[in-house]
Design a protein around this nucleic acid. Structure first.
Length: 954
RNA sequence: GCCCAAGUGGUGAAAUGGUAUACACGACAGACUUAAAAUCUGUUGGUCGCAAGGCCGUGAGAGUUCGAGUCUCUCCUUGGGCACCA
């Protein structure tokens, strides 16, 4: 028999691949009697670069799982296909004039050859290709259903436009203000678009997430993207007008602190009231400049807020009838909520920044609250309120901060004291510093944030104090000190100058210290915490916690007719049209008489016409618009002249339902037969990269829900379980990229080591979900392992049962099976390596044992296992076998090494029977000479865990 | 700024609260060989010790526990996502 190297060189793997393909051994059996499993890979975009080492990582993982499930007696659907519409083929067409269909065909051929050379057990009879008219007929059909349900609509909206790809983009395709595909900064443009009303499904998409067996991080990503928030709408009247401004807020509790309004530049009120706005020319100029700003300028370069007051008009705060100014600013988004806000600078960071810049009033309506843990208030004692200041004195020359250490009370404080009636906080602070420290010259006085309420028991007075404290900051001008005031001497204060990092919550006695630390670090900031504090300056809300105030205020607004409960989502409707050639044509016509009319379903597919130039026009029209004979058609409704819709669908369309087509890929009367979908759905395992967390996975769920609603699919959620494979990095630990030159081509590895080694290596690298670097050196380890397996397989096996192998073999069968179920392939492989390390040669295993070994190895290294299986004289495939059983009794070792801990440290390891009793282990442990050495006196407590350890505490 | 995940030998990485570093790579030493490759055997966290054995050790610090890589809190670092969403 050949050596492993010779087997590989002779194309032994290809031989089996061909055989598996020809015998259709991996065919999924519709309505099969065995229990079904649907194991799905995210299908690839067949790029010109060919397969990347990242692709086979996921494919190998699902392949092992699928092969295992078949051995376990399941009827497995495991298909593969091509997500082949998309920009690269089209951009290549623009450059070279090659038809994208041609490029796509070639790329698919390459991908298919590469994927098949890895020995994956796909049912190739079910291959799909999104660019095949027989496939996109049904993509177009789904679009028509969306249109008929009112979920597809046309709108001229400001969208993200990529000037390089010359097409509009969905929000999901914009990353940091740049095009996700090409990295060009996107522009905002008003364009006629087809939109899909995914927002109508926001709540269901959100609620459905909880039921899914998906990675927690992906679920959170989807939830955040949908971004549901609860709050209230509030109507503000405009003084001297019948117009009003409706705002959305999540913080109706802070309504008494609303000191101005802000409208988005696109808000129509400015236009409606332009007659009353005295500075309208200026306002209009501001609106124009905001319109021309790209998203990048609006967000990333937002260091400074801009805005313009609408002079001559005022809004009326419904809670207190206060007249407040109305501003316009691009920090308010037209596309969220109502496009207008009430600004509460004391309790919102953005409003605070804006108010500081334009010198608008700030009213605090919530005071943070702290209870002194070291000195908590005592029940039944009198409560005495007082106003305090605490003072941070910084020495700007050393950066140090002044702290008083009281020898009498043994605590550290800032200079502090009560404010007298009518005294300003800054003046009080200066006075306290002088009295307590003698420092005379302070400068740059600043109040850091609002008051903080603290409760504590004042021991020396026998009362509960409730203090309202402001933190004041000063710079020390010079060291000149006056005599310390007589009444302060009693505390025996020592003046310390300390590094700021020394001042911690534990070091200082103040209950407010955590808040002070944040303010010292960040300066004057808004208090935005909704979970702590008491309402003040808010009439009927005073004394409530913010959460209570929210419901009370909302009820009040509803009662008075000034507002109502409201819910908002960050999710926007899906911009569904692209101004490109290589996509599904949208099956609609525009008729002067009938408006927008759908094509008849019998006229689908609407195929892509041939075109001379693939270049987008860049004017909001796709290249299809230039083909008159295609564009000009007749209306299916009235028969009169009509024009075809020239936008195409985004790449996400074809991938939003492809898993349904695998179920019945050649059906030309439905996307798939209903009974077949009922049999196969849902997808039991879906595996792919995390980069699709909010794009494909959200769109796919949306389409599936719509198809569910119209009775086409049997389940609301398509993918029961989702697993993300981690990225494979280059050998240098960086992302693989052509420009870095660290890309590994699977073909090279296959040529040198074979498919089984490649599969095994990728699974042995580490946990499937982790990001991990490629290391060509490490391939040798798994290759040696397979070599060893091969060598044993070449030799003559033992004629008799070998009991010493039996125990470890059964352990391995158990471990490998369990690890496959959790997709912990790295440890499954390691378990098999351990097994082989116990087998010096073929004489150590019987035929029966060797067959077991080959079967558990077969999902990982199918070619090698199949070849060695055949060598045993079998004429049928190893993959028709069953997963081996193991005897749970047998895998328990008779003896175990039991560690002995004395006071938590291991002092001895005893070899004892696994089922030794506590008494026996104790006796043995106490007799050990090293244990004796560390036993001082009688053991106080002994913890015994059978078969695990004994721990002695003295 | 907010949300999520992760920090363990020279490297990829193991470890239901119970013997930290399994398995593999690399390195070192040896066997086979004229030699090299391949293969096989042994050693391989740091440190002290002739040895028995001791001490230290899972990003840092605290806590819970007889016992913490694992649980809790604070912090640091890296990666990913979101980012004026009121």
């Amino acid at each position: 028999m050949l050596s492993y190297k010779e087997f590989l060189a002779a194309g032994g793997e290809a031989k089996w691949q061909k055989k598996w393909l020809n015998t259709k051994i991996d065919r999924a059996d519709d309505f099969g009697a065995k229990p079904k499993k649907y194991i799905l890979d995210m299908f690839p975009y067949p790029s010109g670069a060919g397969l990347h080492v990242g692709h086979p990582e996921g494919y190998t993982a699902t392949d092992i799982y699928s092969r295992y499930l078949r051995l376990k007696g399941f009827n497995v659907l495991h298909p593969m296909g091509w997500d082949a519409f998309g920009l690269p083929a089209e951009n290549y067409a623009i450059k070279t004039g090659t038809h994208p269909r041609l490029t796509t065909e070639q790329n698919i051929a390459t991908f298919k050859r590469q994927i098949q050379s890895l020995g994956f057990s796909y049912d190739w009879d079910r291959e799909v290709d999104t660019t095949d008219p027989k496939y996109y007929k049904w993509t177009q059909w789904i679009f028509l259903q969306l249109f008929k349900k009112g979920l597809a609509y046309e709108a001229t909206v400001p969208i993200n436009f990529c000037p390089s790809c010359k097409t509009g983009l969905a929000n999901e395709e914009v990353k940091n203000g740049k095009c996700d595909r090409c990295g060009t900064a996107v522009e905002r443009r008003d364009m006629r678009q087809w939109m899909l009303k995914i927002t109508a499904y926001a709540d269901r998409l959100l609620k459905g997430v909880d039921q899914l067996d998906w990675p927690q991080s992906i679920k959170i990503l989807q939830k955040n993207w949908i971004g549901r928030s609860e709050g209230a709408e509030v109507d503000f009247k405009i003084a001297g007008s019948d117009k009003k401004i409706t705002v959305y807020t999540t913080r109706p509790d802070t309504l008494f602190g609303a000191t101005y309004m802000v409208l988005a530049p696109e808000h129509q009120l400015a236009q409606e009231l332009k007659g009353q706005i005295s500075n309208f020319a200026e306002v209009e100029a501001y609106i124009d400049s905001a319109k021309n700003k790209s998203d990048l300028e609006r967000t990333e370069l937002n260091k400074d807020k801009t805005g313009m007051e609408l002079k001559g008009i005022k809004a009326i705060n419904p809670v207190n009838n206060a007249e407040i100014p109305i501003w316009i600013s691009d920090y308010v988004l037209a596309s969220y909520g109502t496009g207008a806000i009430m600004a509460v600078p004391a309790h919102d960071d953005r409003d605070f920044e804006f108010a500081k810049k334009f010198d608008l009033p700030i009213i605090e309506v919530i005071v943070p609250e702290r209870i002194d843990k070291r000195n908590p208030p005592v029940d039944g004692k009198e409560k005495v309120e007082r106003k305090n200041v605490q003072v941070v004195v910084r020495n700007p020359r050393t950066g140090k901060i002044l702290v008083l250490h009281s020898k009498k009370y043994n605590w550290n404080t800032f200079p502090m004291g009560g404010m007298s009636e009518g005294e300003e906080p800054l003046a009080a602070a200066k006075r306290e510093v002088l009295e307590e420290t003698g420092y005379k010259h302070l400068a740059n006085g600043k109040i850091l944030g609002g008051q903080v309420r603290a409760e504590y028991f004042a021991n020396h007075k026998g009362v509960n104090r409730v203090s309202y404290t402001n933190l004041i900051q000063f710079d020390l001008v010079d060291e000149e000190q006056a005599e310390i005031a007589e009444e302060e001497k009693e505390a025996q204060n020592e003046i310390l100058w300390l590094e700021p990092e020394k001042l911690t919550v534990d070091f200082m006695v103040h209950a407010e210290m955590d808040i002070w630390l944040e303010r010292i670090k960040k300066g004057d900031i808004a208090y935005t915490d909704v979970n702590n504090g008491l309402m003040v300056n808010s009439e009927f809300l005073n004394g409530l916690a913010p959460a209570e105030a929210i419901s009370k205020m909302t009820a009040w607004l509803e009662e008075k007719g000034y507002g109502r409960k409201a819910v908002n989502y960050k999710l926007r409707d899906w911009v569904f049209s692209r101004q490109r050639y290589w996509g599904e044509p949208i099956p609609l016509v525009h008729c002067k008489k009938c408006g927008t009319v759908t094509l008849d379903e019998k006229d689908l597919p609407l195929t892509l016409p041939e075109v001379e130039k693939y270049e987008p026009t860049g004017t909001g029209e796709s290249p299809l618009a230039t083909i008159d004979e295609w564009v000009n058609t007749t209306c299916p409704n009235c028969g009169g002249p009509a024009k075809r819709e020239t936008n195409t669908m985004p790449q996400w369309a074809g991938s939003s339902w492809y898993w349904l087509r695998y179920i019945d890929p050649h059906n030309d009367t439905a996307i798939a037969a209903a009974e077949k979908m009922k049999y196969w759905l849902p997808v039991d395992l879906y595996l792919g990269g995390a980069e699709h967390a909010v794009l494909h996975l959200l769109y796919a769920r949306f389409w599936n829900m719509v198809l569910f609603d119209i009775g086409v699919v049997p389940q609301e959620e398509p993918f029961a379980k989702l697993v993300n494979q981690g990225l494979i990095l280059g050998e240098d630990g960086e992302k693989m990229s052509k420009s870095r030159g660290n890309v590994v081509n699977p073909d090279d590895i296959l040529k040198e080591y074979g498919a089984d080694t490649f599969r095994l290596y990728e699974m042995f690298m580490g946990p499937l979900e982790d990001m991990k670097p490629w290391s060509t050196k490490n391939i040798l380890g798994v290759h040696r392992f397979l070599n060893k397996a091969w060598d044993i397989g070449r030799q003559t096996l033992s004629k008799e049962e070998k009991s010493e192998v039996e125990v470890i073999l059964d352990k391995t069968v158990k471990k490998v099976g369990e690890d496959i179920e959790t997709m912990s392939y790295n440890t499954a492989i390691s378990a098999m390596m351990i097994l082989f390390n116990e087998i010096p040669d073929a004489k150590a295993v019987s035929r029966e044992q060797w067959e077991k070994i080959l079967i558990i190895l077969s999902p990982f290294a199918p070619h090698l296992a199949e070849e060695l299986w055949e060598k045993l004289g079998h004429t049928d495939s190893i993959f028709k076998e069953s997963w081996p059983q193991y005897d749970p009794e047998k895998i328990i070792d008779a003896e175990k090494e039991i560690p002995v801990q004395v006071n938590g440290k291991i002092r001895a390891k005893l070899i004892l029977p696994t089922d030794a009793t506590e008494e026996a282990v104790k006796t043995a442990a106490l007799a050990d000479k090293n244990v004796k050495k560390y036993l001082i006196g009688e053991p106080k407590k002994i913890i015994f865990i059978k078969g695990k350890l004994i721990s002695i505490v003295t």
